[in-house]
Protein backbone atom coordinates (compact mmCIF):
# COMPACT_ATOMS: atom_id res chain seq x y z
CA UNK A 1 0.00 0.00 0.00
CA UNK A 2 2.58 2.53 -1.04
CA UNK A 3 1.18 5.81 -2.18
CA UNK A 4 3.10 7.72 -4.75
CA UNK A 5 2.39 11.39 -4.42
CA UNK A 6 1.52 12.36 -7.95
CA UNK A 7 0.57 15.95 -8.67
CA UNK A 8 -2.58 16.86 -10.60
CA UNK A 9 -3.09 13.71 -12.66
CA UNK A 10 -3.21 10.25 -11.07
CA UNK A 11 -2.27 7.99 -13.94
CA UNK A 12 0.05 5.34 -12.43
CA UNK A 13 2.08 4.97 -15.64
CA UNK A 14 3.43 8.44 -15.25
CA UNK A 15 4.58 8.00 -11.67
CA UNK A 16 8.36 8.17 -11.52
CA UNK A 17 8.67 4.43 -11.02
CA UNK A 18 12.44 4.21 -11.39
CA UNK A 19 13.18 6.75 -8.71
CA UNK A 20 10.88 4.95 -6.24
CA UNK A 21 11.91 1.40 -6.95
CA UNK A 22 14.20 1.07 -3.96
CA UNK A 23 11.63 2.75 -1.76
CA UNK A 24 8.83 0.48 -2.94
CA UNK A 25 10.87 -2.65 -2.44
CA UNK A 26 11.68 -1.53 1.07
CA UNK A 27 8.01 -0.76 1.72
CA UNK A 28 7.06 -4.23 0.47
CA UNK A 29 9.55 -5.82 2.85
CA UNK A 30 8.14 -3.73 5.70
CA UNK A 31 4.62 -4.86 4.78
CA UNK A 32 5.63 -8.50 4.81
CA UNK A 33 7.34 -8.08 8.14
CA UNK A 34 4.26 -6.39 9.59
CA UNK A 35 2.04 -9.27 8.45
CA UNK A 36 4.45 -11.79 9.84
CA UNK A 37 4.59 -10.04 13.21
CA UNK A 38 0.80 -9.86 13.42
CA UNK A 39 0.51 -13.56 12.66
CA UNK A 40 3.41 -14.52 14.92
CA UNK A 41 1.57 -14.78 18.29
CA UNK A 42 -1.07 -17.11 16.84
CA UNK A 43 1.59 -19.09 15.01
CA UNK A 44 3.71 -19.53 18.15
CA UNK A 45 0.74 -20.29 20.39
CA UNK A 46 -0.80 -22.85 18.07
CA UNK A 47 2.55 -24.46 17.34
CA UNK A 48 3.16 -24.90 21.07
CA UNK A 49 -0.36 -25.78 22.19
CA UNK A 50 -1.77 -27.52 19.12
CA UNK A 51 0.83 -28.82 16.68
CA UNK A 52 3.31 -29.96 19.33
CA UNK A 53 0.60 -31.72 21.42
CA UNK A 54 -0.56 -33.41 18.19
CA UNK A 55 2.88 -34.98 17.81
CA UNK A 56 3.13 -35.81 21.52
CA UNK A 57 -0.07 -37.86 21.15
CA UNK A 58 1.58 -39.62 18.20
CA UNK A 59 4.65 -40.39 20.30
CA UNK A 60 2.57 -41.68 23.23
CA UNK A 61 0.70 -44.06 20.98
CA UNK A 62 3.95 -46.01 20.54
CA UNK A 63 4.86 -45.96 24.24
CA UNK A 64 4.51 -48.72 26.82
CA UNK A 65 1.97 -49.01 29.60
CA UNK A 66 3.55 -50.29 32.79
CA UNK A 67 1.75 -52.63 35.18
CA UNK A 68 0.84 -49.71 37.48
CA UNK A 69 -0.85 -47.82 34.68
CA UNK A 70 1.86 -45.22 34.23
CA UNK A 71 3.33 -44.67 30.79
CA UNK A 72 6.95 -45.47 30.03
CA UNK A 73 8.37 -43.53 27.13
CA UNK A 74 10.66 -46.35 26.09
CA UNK A 75 10.42 -49.84 24.60
CA UNK A 76 8.59 -48.34 21.62
CA UNK A 77 6.05 -50.71 20.12
CA UNK A 78 2.89 -50.91 18.03
CA UNK A 79 0.84 -52.88 20.57
CA UNK A 80 -1.71 -50.05 20.85
CA UNK A 81 -2.30 -50.16 17.11
CA UNK A 82 -2.60 -53.95 17.08
CA UNK A 83 -5.22 -53.59 19.78
CA UNK A 84 -7.30 -51.42 17.44
CA UNK A 85 -8.17 -54.56 15.50
CA UNK A 86 -9.68 -56.21 18.57
CA UNK A 87 -13.33 -57.03 17.67
CA UNK A 88 -14.54 -54.94 20.64
CA UNK A 89 -12.68 -51.86 19.38
CA UNK A 90 -13.68 -52.42 15.76
CA UNK A 91 -17.28 -52.64 16.97
CA UNK A 92 -17.02 -49.31 18.81
CA UNK A 93 -15.40 -47.56 15.83
CA UNK A 94 -18.05 -48.99 13.52
CA UNK A 95 -20.87 -47.89 15.85
CA UNK A 96 -19.43 -44.37 16.08
CA UNK A 97 -19.15 -44.28 12.30
CA UNK A 98 -22.73 -45.27 11.58
CA UNK A 99 -24.27 -43.15 14.34
CA UNK A 100 -22.28 -40.13 13.05
CA UNK A 101 -23.29 -40.92 9.44
CA UNK A 102 -26.95 -41.28 10.39
CA UNK A 103 -26.78 -37.99 12.32
CA UNK A 104 -25.17 -36.21 9.36
CA UNK A 105 -27.69 -37.54 6.81
CA UNK A 106 -30.72 -36.67 8.96
CA UNK A 107 -29.32 -33.21 9.70
CA UNK A 108 -28.75 -32.62 5.98
CA UNK A 109 -32.22 -33.82 4.96
CA UNK A 110 -33.91 -31.64 7.58
CA UNK A 111 -31.60 -28.63 7.34
CA UNK A 112 -31.52 -28.20 3.56
CA UNK A 113 -35.22 -27.40 3.06
CA UNK A 114 -35.15 -25.46 6.33
CA UNK A 115 -32.20 -23.29 5.25
CA UNK A 116 -33.75 -22.89 1.80
CA UNK A 117 -36.98 -21.75 3.36
CA UNK A 118 -35.50 -19.13 5.68
CA UNK A 119 -32.99 -17.90 3.06
CA UNK A 120 -35.85 -17.15 0.65
CA UNK A 121 -37.93 -15.03 3.05
CA UNK A 122 -37.93 -11.23 3.06
CA UNK A 123 -34.91 -9.61 4.66
CA UNK A 124 -36.71 -8.72 7.89
CA UNK A 125 -38.26 -12.17 8.29
CA UNK A 126 -34.94 -13.79 7.46
CA UNK A 127 -33.17 -11.97 10.29
CA UNK A 128 -35.78 -12.96 12.86
CA UNK A 129 -35.84 -16.59 11.69
CA UNK A 130 -32.05 -16.71 11.85
CA UNK A 131 -31.91 -15.37 15.40
CA UNK A 132 -34.03 -18.29 16.53
CA UNK A 133 -31.44 -20.64 15.03
CA UNK A 134 -28.60 -18.74 16.68
CA UNK A 135 -30.08 -19.11 20.18
CA UNK A 136 -29.70 -22.91 20.29
CA UNK A 137 -26.35 -22.55 18.51
CA UNK A 138 -25.08 -20.35 21.35
CA UNK A 139 -26.77 -22.21 24.21
CA UNK A 140 -24.86 -24.57 26.43
CA UNK A 141 -24.41 -27.93 24.68
CA UNK A 142 -24.34 -29.91 27.93
CA UNK A 143 -27.60 -28.37 29.12
CA UNK A 144 -29.29 -29.00 25.78
CA UNK A 145 -28.22 -32.64 25.92
CA UNK A 146 -29.39 -32.89 29.52
CA UNK A 147 -32.83 -31.61 28.42
CA UNK A 148 -33.25 -34.83 26.43
CA UNK A 149 -32.10 -36.97 29.34
CA UNK A 150 -34.81 -35.28 31.39
CA UNK A 151 -37.46 -35.67 28.65
CA UNK A 152 -36.71 -39.30 27.83
CA UNK A 153 -36.07 -40.54 31.39
CA UNK A 154 -38.23 -43.27 32.92
CA UNK A 155 -39.65 -40.64 35.29
CA UNK A 156 -39.68 -37.87 32.68
CA UNK A 157 -42.61 -35.95 31.17
CA UNK A 158 -42.83 -38.11 28.02
CA UNK A 159 -42.98 -41.37 29.98
CA UNK A 160 -45.55 -39.87 32.38
CA UNK A 161 -47.68 -38.58 29.53
CA UNK A 162 -47.63 -41.84 27.60
CA UNK A 163 -48.50 -43.78 30.75
CA UNK A 164 -51.37 -41.42 31.49
CA UNK A 165 -52.64 -41.87 27.94
CA UNK A 166 -52.34 -45.63 28.23
CA UNK A 167 -49.72 -45.92 25.51
CA UNK A 168 -47.45 -48.00 27.70
CA UNK A 169 -43.81 -47.28 28.38
CA UNK A 170 -41.48 -46.09 25.66
CA UNK A 171 -37.87 -47.08 26.17
CA UNK A 172 -35.61 -44.82 24.17
CA UNK A 173 -33.08 -43.63 26.73
CA UNK A 174 -29.72 -45.47 26.70
CA UNK A 175 -30.25 -46.71 23.12
CA UNK A 176 -28.45 -45.61 19.92
CA UNK A 177 -31.68 -43.80 18.96
CA UNK A 178 -31.40 -41.56 22.03
CA UNK A 179 -27.74 -40.84 21.20
CA UNK A 180 -28.64 -39.98 17.60
CA UNK A 181 -31.46 -37.67 18.76
CA UNK A 182 -29.04 -35.92 21.11
CA UNK A 183 -26.40 -35.50 18.40
CA UNK A 184 -28.92 -34.20 15.86
CA UNK A 185 -30.25 -31.80 18.47
CA UNK A 186 -26.75 -30.63 19.33
CA UNK A 187 -25.28 -30.30 15.85
CA UNK A 188 -28.24 -29.32 13.64
CA UNK A 189 -27.36 -25.59 13.83
CA UNK A 190 -23.88 -26.42 12.48
CA UNK A 191 -25.56 -27.86 9.38
CA UNK A 192 -28.14 -25.09 9.00
CA UNK A 193 -25.75 -22.11 9.16
CA UNK A 194 -23.37 -23.02 6.28
CA UNK A 195 -26.32 -24.18 4.15
CA UNK A 196 -28.12 -20.93 4.83
CA UNK A 197 -25.02 -18.96 3.85
CA UNK A 198 -24.60 -20.90 0.61
CA UNK A 199 -28.26 -20.59 -0.40
CA UNK A 200 -28.48 -16.94 0.56
CA UNK A 201 -25.61 -15.85 -1.64
CA UNK A 202 -26.78 -17.90 -4.64
CA UNK A 203 -27.47 -16.05 -7.89
CA UNK A 204 -31.13 -16.85 -8.51
CA UNK A 205 -30.92 -15.62 -12.09
CA UNK A 206 -29.14 -18.87 -12.90
CA UNK A 207 -32.16 -20.86 -11.72
CA UNK A 208 -34.39 -18.56 -13.76
CA UNK A 209 -32.22 -19.11 -16.82
CA UNK A 210 -32.50 -22.87 -16.38
CA UNK A 211 -36.30 -22.59 -16.15
CA UNK A 212 -36.35 -20.37 -19.24
CA UNK A 213 -34.51 -23.13 -21.05
CA UNK A 214 -37.38 -25.50 -20.21
CA UNK A 215 -35.80 -27.31 -17.23
CA UNK A 216 -38.56 -28.45 -14.87
CA UNK A 217 -38.32 -27.50 -11.20
CA UNK A 218 -36.58 -30.69 -10.15
CA UNK A 219 -34.04 -30.60 -12.97
CA UNK A 220 -33.25 -26.94 -12.26
CA UNK A 221 -32.72 -27.80 -8.60
CA UNK A 222 -30.53 -30.81 -9.37
CA UNK A 223 -28.45 -29.15 -12.09
CA UNK A 224 -28.20 -25.59 -10.78
CA UNK A 225 -29.18 -25.07 -7.14
CA UNK A 226 -27.56 -28.21 -5.76
CA UNK A 227 -24.14 -27.69 -7.41
CA UNK A 228 -24.16 -24.00 -6.42
CA UNK A 229 -24.82 -24.83 -2.77
CA UNK A 230 -22.37 -27.71 -2.65
CA UNK A 231 -19.87 -25.73 -0.56
CA UNK A 232 -22.52 -25.35 2.16
CA UNK A 233 -23.43 -29.03 2.03
CA UNK A 234 -19.80 -30.07 2.37
CA UNK A 235 -19.02 -27.57 5.13
CA UNK A 236 -22.13 -28.49 7.12
CA UNK A 237 -21.56 -32.24 6.74
CA UNK A 238 -17.99 -31.86 7.95
CA UNK A 239 -19.01 -29.74 10.94
CA UNK A 240 -21.62 -32.35 11.94
CA UNK A 241 -19.86 -35.60 11.08
CA UNK A 242 -16.47 -35.04 12.70
CA UNK A 243 -17.69 -33.88 16.14
CA UNK A 244 -20.38 -36.60 16.12
CA UNK A 245 -17.82 -39.27 15.36
CA UNK A 246 -15.71 -38.23 18.34
CA UNK A 247 -18.66 -37.31 20.57
CA UNK A 248 -18.27 -37.88 24.30
CA UNK A 249 -20.82 -35.82 26.23
CA UNK A 250 -23.88 -37.00 24.28
CA UNK A 251 -23.28 -40.79 24.41
CA UNK A 252 -22.21 -40.41 28.03
CA UNK A 253 -25.51 -38.76 29.01
CA UNK A 254 -27.99 -40.41 26.63
CA UNK A 255 -26.28 -43.68 25.79
CA UNK A 256 -25.94 -46.82 27.84
CA UNK A 257 -23.39 -49.56 28.35
CA UNK A 258 -24.27 -51.00 24.95
CA UNK A 259 -23.90 -47.75 23.02
CA UNK A 260 -20.31 -46.84 23.88
CA UNK A 261 -18.88 -44.56 21.22
CA UNK A 262 -15.26 -43.84 20.37
CA UNK A 263 -15.11 -40.56 22.34
CA UNK A 264 -16.26 -42.23 25.56
CA UNK A 265 -13.91 -45.13 24.96
CA UNK A 266 -10.97 -42.74 24.62
CA UNK A 267 -11.85 -40.98 27.88
CA UNK A 268 -12.11 -44.35 29.60
CA UNK A 269 -8.50 -45.13 28.59
CA UNK A 270 -7.32 -41.98 30.35
CA UNK A 271 -9.51 -42.23 33.44
CA UNK A 272 -10.53 -45.73 34.57
CA UNK A 273 -8.31 -47.98 32.44
CA UNK A 274 -5.23 -45.77 32.68
CA UNK A 275 -3.86 -46.93 29.36
CA UNK A 276 -2.52 -43.72 27.85
CA UNK A 277 -0.73 -45.29 24.87
CA UNK A 278 -3.92 -47.05 23.76
CA UNK A 279 -5.99 -43.89 24.37
CA UNK A 280 -3.49 -41.99 22.22
CA UNK A 281 -3.77 -44.54 19.41
CA UNK A 282 -7.58 -44.20 19.54
CA UNK A 283 -7.23 -40.40 19.36
CA UNK A 284 -5.05 -40.84 16.30
CA UNK A 285 -7.93 -42.79 14.70
CA UNK A 286 -10.26 -39.84 15.30
CA UNK A 287 -7.71 -37.42 13.84
CA UNK A 288 -7.23 -39.59 10.76
CA UNK A 289 -10.99 -39.69 10.15
CA UNK A 290 -11.02 -35.91 10.59
CA UNK A 291 -8.19 -35.38 8.10
CA UNK A 292 -9.75 -37.79 5.58
CA UNK A 293 -13.05 -35.88 5.81
CA UNK A 294 -11.20 -32.57 5.37
CA UNK A 295 -9.26 -33.79 2.34
CA UNK A 296 -12.37 -35.35 0.79
CA UNK A 297 -14.10 -32.01 1.07
CA UNK A 298 -11.14 -30.07 -0.28
CA UNK A 299 -10.95 -32.31 -3.33
CA UNK A 300 -14.62 -32.29 -4.21
CA UNK A 301 -14.57 -28.53 -3.68
CA UNK A 302 -11.60 -28.20 -6.01
CA UNK A 303 -13.30 -30.21 -8.74
CA UNK A 304 -16.18 -27.79 -8.65
CA UNK A 305 -13.84 -25.00 -9.71
Amino acid sequence: MTSTIAPEDHSPEEAPAVAHEGLEARAAVAERRRGFLLGLPAMVYLTLLFVLPFFIVGVYSFATRSATGSTRLSDWNIDSYVKLFDPLVVGIVWRSFWIASLTTVICLVVAYPFAYYIATRSRAARNVLLVFVMIPFWSNFLIRTYAWRFLLGSDGPIAQASEALGLGTIRVLFTPVAVAIGLIYGFLPFMILPLYAAIERMDWRLVEAARDLYADGWTAFRKVTLPLTKSGILAGSLLVFVPSFGAYVTPEILGGAKTVMLGSYVVRQFQQARNWPFGSALSIVIMIIMLVALIARQRSGAREL
Partner: peptide, 20 residues
Amino acid sequence: ILYLPIIIPDVTMAVMMLLF
Protein backbone atom coordinates in the same frame (compact mmCIF):
# COMPACT_ATOMS: atom_id res chain seq x y z
CA ILE B 1 -3.69 -24.67 11.30
CA LEU B 2 -6.28 -22.10 12.37
CA TYR B 3 -9.11 -24.19 10.91
CA LEU B 4 -8.25 -27.42 12.73
CA PRO B 5 -9.21 -26.46 16.33
CA ILE B 6 -12.70 -25.60 15.04
CA ILE B 7 -13.55 -29.07 13.77
CA ILE B 8 -11.39 -31.27 16.00
CA PRO B 9 -13.61 -33.29 18.39
CA ASP B 10 -13.17 -32.04 21.95
CA VAL B 11 -12.05 -35.45 23.21
CA THR B 12 -9.05 -35.34 20.88
CA MET B 13 -8.25 -31.79 21.92
CA ALA B 14 -8.53 -32.88 25.57
CA VAL B 15 -6.09 -35.76 25.07
CA MET B 16 -3.64 -33.47 23.28
CA MET B 17 -3.73 -30.92 26.10
CA LEU B 18 -3.40 -33.52 28.86
CA LEU B 19 -0.37 -35.20 27.29
CA PHE B 20 1.20 -31.83 26.47
